[in-house]
Simulated assay, not measured.
Amino acid sequence: MKTKTRVAIQGIKASFHEEAAFKFFGQDIDTVECNSFKETCDKLEQNDADFVVMAIENSIAGSLLPNYTLIRDFGFAVVGEVYLAIQLHLMALPGVKFEDIKTVTSHPIAIRQCIDFFYDYPHIKIVESNDTAACAKRIKDEQLLDTMAIANSLAAELYDLNILERRVESNKKNYTRFLILKKERKDEGKEINKASICFQVEKRYRINLLLNILTRQTPKQ
């Protein structure tokens, strides 16, 4: 029997990281849940995972600089990337109506991306948590009848929740770029069309020298 590809993600099943993993590898994978990005790297380093899917930048929030540091420090190879549209929905237990809701919970970034929606509902208490999918799971596990989560449709499907409102994010063009990391690169004849450069300068003003060099190397149009 063919062994499933083990993919380490930050978060739990039905998180955006797993959605990105499904988009790249397909759904026939073994998801390795981790509590932090550092833990995903540890799993890959210890051969407890074959790949890591790691968010690296968001079109609204910007770059996740600590993740660049992890990639550099562990020396992993970047073997792919995924662009994922971040679509956020409000979900609750079956039978619960929007007017029953007293609390909404999600990851702080997801909440900020939907904050415009809640200006019209000041009576709803907003509670931050560590993971979008974990919020959906908690509603199911604890049978919370007055609480809804902000998460993706994958979480609603996995945790048997009904979507009360779709696409509540303020910016409908919100994308996150995820990198696919592997312990060692094996190109296997594949064409490589992208490269990344990591560097540092000794003093702040030296950046001008670097920019001058890059300018001289840029081909004239």
Rank of each mutant, 00 (worst) to 15 (best):
M1F: 10
T3K: 14
T5V: 12
R6Q: 13
I9P: 01
I9F: 09
K13M: 12
A14Q: 05
A20Q: 04
A21S: 14
F22N: 14
F24I: 05
F25R: 05
D28Y: 07
I29H: 08
I29A: 07
T40S: 08
C41R: 02
D42N: 13
L44F: 06
L44H: 02
E45N: 12
E45A: 11
Q46F: 11
Q46H: 11
D50Q: 03
F51Y: 15
V53K: 01
M54R: 02
A55Y: 00
N58K: 12
N58F: 06
A61L: 11
L65A: 15
P66R: 02
Y68P: 02
R72F: 09
D73R: 11
D73L: 08
D73C: 00
F74L: 05
F76M: 08
V78E: 07
V79L: 10
E81S: 13
L84Y: 03
Q87M: 12
Q87A: 13
L88I: 12
H89G: 03
H89R: 06
L90D: 06
M91Q: 10
A92S: 14
G95W: 07
G95H: 05
K97P: 02
H107M: 08
A110K: 00
R112S: 12
D120T: 10
P122G: 05
E128S: 10
N130T: 14
D131L: 02
A134Q: 09
C135F: 04
C135W: 01
I139R: 03
D141F: 01
E142Q: 11
I150L: 04
A151E: 01
L158Q: 08
L161E: 02
N162W: 00
I163P: 00
L164M: 10
E169Y: 03
S170N: 15
N174T: 12
T176Q: 07
T176Y: 04
T176E: 08
R177H: 08
F178A: 03
L181K: 04
L181M: 10
K183S: 10
E184P: 00
D187Y: 07
G189Y: 09
K190M: 07
E191W: 01
I192R: 06
S196H: 11
C198R: 11
C198A: 11
Y205F: 09
I207T: 05
L209F: 07
L210A: 09
I213D: 12
T215A: 14
T215D: 14
R216L: 11
T218M: 13
Q221E: 09
Q221F: 10
